[in-house]
Simulated assay, not measured.
Amino acid sequence: MKIIINRLQSFCNYSCVIIFTIFIQNSPYLFAQNSFYVPHNTLSVGAGTASYYGDLSPYSRPIQSTIDEIRWNIAANYIHSFGNHWSTRVGLKYIRIAGDDANMLGVKGKEARFVRNLHFRNDVKELSLMMAYDFVNAPRYYAKRKLLSPYLLGGITAFLHSPEAKTPDGTWVKLRPLNTEGQGLPNYDTPYKVWGMGAAVGAGIRIKLSPHLDLGLESSFHYAFTDYLDDVYGKYASNTDLTDPLAIAMANRSGEKVAILSGIDRTEGIRSYVVLKEPFYANPATDPFTSTSIRNFGRAGTSRGGSALKDGYLVTSINLIFHLPNKVVCPKY
């Protein structure tokens, strides 16, 4: 038995040597994808649109939520390509997003959101770290790349934000310091942070314009790990707890007769909500804002927000991409 074991060990050792030798001899071919590729760097700048999804622009209406209150973004990226298909990039974006309950006018099942009458805008300053996969196999030198190069990307984001809204007299104010849902007060949630983290996925295509310049088209969805990009998340706070008149006015805006952003008269939209519970207000001569339904709307402890998903935004941009020349290394003799 001992002789058999020794012979098996010798055979295994001999086999391992042969396999290792074959591996070493053929390693240039096994790793040919990266061994002949010359890494290089690019810079890109761009601008485009931004659309918000959340409590004031529901995910359940993706097309309308993309169009309603569409805003803008500007961006810059530094990209390092290290393989035939793979690259990493660091990006900076300045993104304006916005939402308005007035867009829910006449939308079946969203009548209470129209009554709620909240709105916001938020300038999100975002830093991202992404990985990208190019579908087209890159040549050894970037100047010989294909005309079209589609790609996928994904990564993590970190951002600063501060939602704002217009007061009834038309002045923009920051909402976080007002603690509109009682944040920071006893028996309420803690105040939300001015920074946050998130994840992003997207796709794009680069179009070669010259050996050193591309035109890029890209769209990416950014999901925030917070539900406060719009300052709306939980329940209405008690007016006796808020105490600040401005906080009270910004927390519950259901009694305002005009939507402050769009300027539309809300009377008939409110009437269509009220008559379902109080048919008396079907009479055009009546004022639906005096109804019990509206006077009790936003009572302390009732839902102010609470989407199943956290807030997010879709960013679409047109980019100019500059390929940086590789460093020339002179041979040593």
Rank of each mutant, 00 (worst) to 15 (best):
R176C: 05
R176N: 07
L178D: 11
L178M: 12
N179S: 14
T180N: 08
E181A: 15
G182K: 03
Q183K: 07
G184L: 08
P186Y: 00
P186R: 02
N187Q: 10
Y188L: 04
Y188V: 00
T190V: 11
T190S: 03
T190L: 06
P191S: 14
V194M: 09
M197W: 14
M197D: 11
A199Y: 12
A199N: 08
V201K: 05
G204Y: 05
I205Q: 04
I205C: 08
K208G: 08
S210F: 15
S210N: 11
S210M: 01
P211E: 13
P211I: 04
L213A: 15
L213N: 15
D214W: 12
D214L: 09
G216V: 02
L217R: 03
L217G: 03
L217M: 09
E218M: 08
E218I: 04
S220P: 08
S220F: 11
H222M: 03
Y223W: 15
A224W: 09
A224K: 07
F225T: 02
D227Y: 00
D230N: 10
Y233R: 03
G234L: 08
K235L: 11
K235Y: 12
Y236H: 12
S238R: 01
T240F: 08
T240W: 01
T243D: 07
D244V: 01
P245T: 09
P245I: 09
P245N: 09
L246A: 09
I248L: 05
A249C: 05
M250Q: 15
N252A: 06
R253C: 05
R253D: 11
